[in-house]
């Protein structure tokens, strides 16, 4: 049981980070505003969670402009995908665990 809990990734403790990563697993890129509407969070809150995923190198950031409007897109990195997949399989094992 203890090993299983340790296999969980601390980065995904937060529901918001879990949500960001889930959405990025099934979409190539998602921009900031789409994530904000999807998760129903404030700008600041979302930005800080994105920052910590970026620091963990689980997501990459692409900045561009549409006319004068800045557009920030996020993408899951290879490392991030791997970490998320092993987090999911750890969750599945924990659910099936019977003492």
């Amino acid at each position: 049981m203890k090993d299983l809990i340790e296999a969980l990734d601390k980065t995904f403790d937060s529901r918001i980070r879990l949500g960001i990563m889930s959405a990025l697993m099934v979409n190539d890129t998602i921009d900031f505003n789409a994530l904000k509407e999807l998760l129903d969070v404030t700008d600041g809150n979302l930005a800080s969670h994105l920052k910590s995923l970026e620091t963990a190198t689980y997501i990459s950031v692409q900045k561009s402009f549409i006319g004068r409007k800045p557009l920030t897109r996020y993408k899951a990195t290879k490392q991030g995908r791997k970490a998320f997949e092993s987090h999911i399989s750890a969750l599945e094992k924990l659910i099936r665990f019977k003492p």
Partner: peptide
């Protein structure tokens, strides 16, 4: 944990 998995599934579904 199963809530987490349900959340993941719903986020994947709603975003795609």
């Amino acid at each position: 944990y199963s809530d987490d998995l349900a959340h993941i599934r719903s986020m994947m579904e709603r975003s795609s």
